[in-house]
Design a binder for these strands. Structure first.
Lengths: 214, 214, 214, 214
DNA sequence: TATGAATGAGAATTCATTCAT
DNA sequence: CATGAATGAATTCTCATTCAT
């Protein structure tokens, strides 16, 4: 059993090394890197990657899962600190949420990839894991939100957080540009799309929450 | 002068045939089809496709452009019919907008693809065209929105519509599933994500607009 | 007949325009340009090119033919001016021939292409035309060479000129580099191949001729 | 450490199999064969080829490198056997060199391809390797030539061998014909170009060397 | 467990040439 | 004669994944 535990630790550590390598390469290149590169960056052989992940996409879904877990963990205190009801809730949440998102690194680009790319070649099970974690994270946070702010009826907290996530994801996609197209934004006709994501996000979330709280 | 140059109409009609073929294949398969298939589906030869579009991605951006043009065209009357100020604006817009989106067909999946995939292999110029049309459509609609509802200050209409677009896009991604994963939604842990998109969208937009109008 | 003659002139003029366009594009790009580009550069339509040349290669063989015709024309006076026998012949010819080659523009790169590329897709007849012109040019010049210098036996002039051509062509290939590889020449190990073509050619030809004249 | 990494020998042997397959196909067809065909001929899969060579052109440059290495190896004894100075050198070298070239197989057609085709799509590094080997081979042989024959000044041996190579390459191009055009040679106007390469080469080289040695 | 050699499906794009008008 | 739209053959190279060792 001791041997097993140790093996389990080693296994987990290998997994983490692979995840970090994949994450780093993705950050550097802006596209899903080839498995061979991930293996090399992790100091392992190509075949070894497949002892830890069944497909390349599974690696990135795992990354996504980690990212969301961290985000939800950070979200707890923010929700707990919200004032009961009233006008201040929206503004306060929007500000804190904006900071959380800013600190979440590559979560958004990765999440945007999820639908378009990752889900194409993914065994069902990791997908279930990810979606389940997402659903449960939102549900738990929703309950907490309702408890602290008095938002009613039951379920409306979950719904609001789902919308919050959607707005965040969509806004990031509307405002983010691949490096090659950044220049376009300087053209006068595109001024309307050249907005600061962080600032825009805070305003949008604040509006959504004001509306949800009336 | 050229005896057999294609007339502008003929050329446009060929283009439309290609666009429709591409659109249909995309709808059927859920992924960007190979150019060879598009050509065949359009009754043309592979090389011919490249007389009308420089890259495969350009085809789909053109589709996107058309879709948005139609959406904006339909949006005009909706905005014009909004009541001046007041509480009713949000609910009325949300209902009509939901219908517009429902009628827009594949616009959303295609738009979701834009960032992740289409922008990878696209000459700048069609990208500029698309983004410019989008920016101008939003700006024009924003002005109209302000004029009819009295929303102030200037620019807030444009901003609200940008957020509306983002929320729509993000929500679609959060709630849509590739066919292979639809079964997952029946599992109890995922009940929270098994929501009707149309209904959810209407609620979310209504909240956002209520918040924007206070 | 007047009409015919005029047509004939027009036809020849069109041909020349095409040849010049092809030549210019080849000079600019260093590779055989697409037919479409040649047509555009000549202000004609793509199909029109095929009214004047049966294949793309035929265009470039025609260019080659022109180039050699000019070279042979210029070679005549050089041969006529050679001293009868003696040691001075080699040096004098080498010097003049080097100038001719230098003035011949793209003849060498084109000639180098002939074997590797042009002959792959060429109707027999233009090939015959070209080779015949080449053979006759060399034979005529050989006779002239023999007459003036007293080189014997009969045929040895032709042979010497054939060898002269071969040495020129081979030397150009050994010493010429595509732009992308010019940098290589600065490396010390490659110093031996970094020679001035004009100078090298003169020396090589002089040696060959000295040997031929004993 | 790697349990099943290929040994250097095995890897080299695979490489050789690929080279031989490529060589054979080139000989049979007279054009660079598609990679797919090379792979099939070597009993390997297409992708495998790219584990050994980065581009198709690299294969043929490797072939060229091998060929020249063999030629230089065979050239050594020939140079060592040359008489010191005097009139006999040229004739003796020409005869032996002609035999070497005759035994070198496809070296010449391949070398003729180098400029026109191979250099178009070649990573710099294999190109450097090849050119460096060529330069060093010529330099070393040149020094040997000077040592044995007393040819002076220093460097003139290298120069003479460069010219020898150029003359050989150019002559081959002037006299060789693709199979489809061999028939042309029977026409009387082309009699001047219908020469036996081996014989012609010996004469040309002899003349060049006589001239170089005075 | 780890390795890394081998696999081969997969797809975009170019461009010479034809031919209906 | 001229046009230029249409054709479709042709080929490279990448890369996820497997599996013998």
């Amino acid at each position: 059993m001791a041997r097993n535990a140790l093996s389990e630790d080693e296994r987990e550590s290998r997994r983490q090394i692979l995840l970090e390598a994949a994450h780093r390469l993705y950050r550097e290149r802006g596209v899903l890197p080839p498995v061979a590169d991930i293996a090399t960056a992790a100091g392992l052989a190509k075949g070894t990657v497949y002892l830890y992940f069944r497909t390349k996409e599974e690696i990135f879904v795992a990354l996504l899962e980690d990212g969301f877990a961290r985000l939800f963990a950070a979200l707890g205190p923010v929700l707990d600190g919200l004032p009961r009801g009233g006008a201040a809730v929206a503004a306060q949440f929007a500000r804190h949420f904006g900071q959380l998102v800013a600190a979440s690194g590559d979560l958004l680009p990765l999440a945007a990839l999820a639908n378009a790319v990752l889900e194409q070649n993914l065994p069902v099970e990791p997908m279930r894991r990810f979606k389940t974690a997402l659903a449960q994270g939102i549900a738990a946070a929703g309950a907490r939100l309702e408890a602290h702010t008095g938002l009613a009826p039951a379920g409306s907290g979950e719904t609001l957080l789902l919308h919050t996530y959607a707005l965040t994801l969509g806004l990031w996609q509307a405002l983010s540009y691949p490096a090659a197209l950044k220049i376009l934004l300087k053209e006068p006709e595109l001024r309307g799309l050249d907005r600061d994501f962080a600032n825009e996000l805070e305003n949008a979330i604040a509006a959504l929450w004001r509306g949800a709280f009336h």
